[in-house]
Design a protein around this nucleic acid. Sequence first.
DNA 1: GTGAAAGCGCTAACAA
DNA 2: TTGTTAGCGCTTTCAC
Lengths: 346, 346
Amino acid sequence: MDSEGSGPQPTRAPTIYDVAEAAGVAPSTVSRTFARPGRVNSRTAERIRAAATELGYRTTPVAQAPATSRTGMIAVLVSDLANPIHAELLRGAQVAASAAGYGVLVEDTREDAVTERGIAERIVPLVEGVLLSSSRMSDAAIRGIAKQRPVVVLNRGLTDVACVVADEERGTRRAVEHLGEAGHRDLAYVAGPDASWPNGARWRAFSDACHELSLTGRRIGPFDPTFAGGFEAALALSGARATGVVVFNALMAVGVIRGLQQAGLRVPEDVSVVGFDDVLIGQVVSPALTTVSTPLQAMGATALRNLLALVNGARSHGRPVVVPARLMPRDSSGPAPVARSVTRVQ
Amino acid sequence: MDSEGSGPQPTRAPTIYDVAEAAGVAPSTVSRTFARPGRVNSRTAERIRAAATELGYRTTPVAQAPATSRTGMIAVLVSDLANPIHAELLRGAQVAASAAGYGVLVEDTREDAVTERGIAERIVPLVEGVLLSSSRMSDAAIRGIAKQRPVVVLNRGLTDVACVVADEERGTRRAVEHLGEAGHRDLAYVAGPDASWPNGARWRAFSDACHELSLTGRRIGPFDPTFAGGFEAALALSGARATGVVVFNALMAVGVIRGLQQAGLRVPEDVSVVGFDDVLIGQVVSPALTTVSTPLQAMGATALRNLLALVNGARSHGRPVVVPARLMPRDSSGPAPVARSVTRVQ
DNA sequence: GTGAAAGCGCTAACAA
DNA sequence: TTGTTAGCGCTTTCAC
């Protein structure tokens, strides 16, 4: 049906001028038709649209950018694309962005603050807003970016900047209670990166909860927030006396489980493991991972919508958005081994 | 150290005019300094750069876009961000893009050809090139896009468009040989989406290899290319006589393993399972997945570099880039069960 | 080697 | 409601 072989050149895309000429109006009218609908007579608008589709005209965000300083793009920086939580977060964010007519620029900062800063600087002039997920940058660096563009941070609490975080406090407490109720008295927290905000929050909550429940709670780490990091942690763990361990994230938790098994320990008979993030890999490993679960896609979508609100002039209302976390008991946790637990609870 | 609290406004970014004034030269000279280095006296250049860093000036791709029709961005469309192969591919692609000073716009097309077309149309005017990974669009739709922008397709063979694919033929053949050598005579191929090119390629290679080795090879499916899809397939499989199954991808293969186990079959004692893609989840599941492995990050990087070459005027040389695939034997495959195999091989 | 001036495609006053 | 006229920030002839 199409005319074909008109030439090897991709025939320069039609502009508002072409459309204007075809429709017999001024270019500015064409511009208004697309940029500010309603400000133009519906009859002319119709004629213009007809001409536009006829010629195959499409608005060109990058062309309107210099004039309006709107690029229609949002940058999302994630710490590690290989971590499945980011796939979820991103899906939520992308759907929300598309729905609002925005595009999403995804960058993987590879768990490195310096890389992250570099990427952020490169990307900031291109976008209208920045979503930082699990950022490893310093608070100061984040505030610096927030000075240039609206910013929402995900998985991190930070004053003066809009945040979306899970209820780490409550989620972690539930994990500790869960282990306590099963009779575990010696717990360990396997730490992720020091630069990770949730890592700090979880460790603090873990520590507090242990204290209140009169449990022993130590910390080991930091380890890489990856399967390999967890596997490595398991070595340290297998020499320790803890019978219940809480692990920074799901990837690590799976590594811990496999590492423990490798070392000849049974999960959960000898050691119970609880992780964070309800992702597929945790359901697939044997035993299936007991985990603290948060609605990742929803978090991504919420964060992006809040960012868009800021972009469109809303004022951040200070308080962070906290989404609920709940414990998903599965098979990696169970009663404390009788031989190792000193007392049974109550 | 910084001046602070200069106001709530994000203080408009400096332009070449600001730099020009500060350096006592014309704006065009500043422009040249950054856009066409060498065309300007090294002394003046130095002075200009100094002023630029002083003011914190940064080139703004979107501002140079209207004048040069260069946006400095590449779009990467992936069929499903939740599939871990895409995290790998993307990492390779992003590193390659950053190295060349390009940004990557990632979009998740959610396994849907219509969604994918829509996204592609929206994104095309913004970018200089498009990388399509595991595209579900029709060949015609892809060629349509290729008419407007340089395109490289990943995981798909297609004439007239640059492609990067794994050696599906050889990889699949190795999987079948592996099962044949272990004494399996009745094989099954668990199919993924019809719109997936690797799915077709793998099924054809599977079928051919079975024929040549005098094995029985049936096909079941299509199923969703997800864990759930594989789990569902396992139900169909548990009623069949196949003792060796080749599964479209790793996610599905893991689903198949778990589904089979759920149905009371042992892997690999009763049924051997071989998948595609060497990703973490396949190593974590018990038994660890025997799989056909391809260098995903390298593929992503290669595809992106080839795309950049096209963007910079290179002519596509027709033939697809084929990267090697090899079999990673692990624990999900083993000797055929004696009771069920009619004959032993040799 | 550098400056002046004219655009790139589009939007935004300002008149008409 | 629509056309005219300046720009947005940058690049690029074309002279000097």
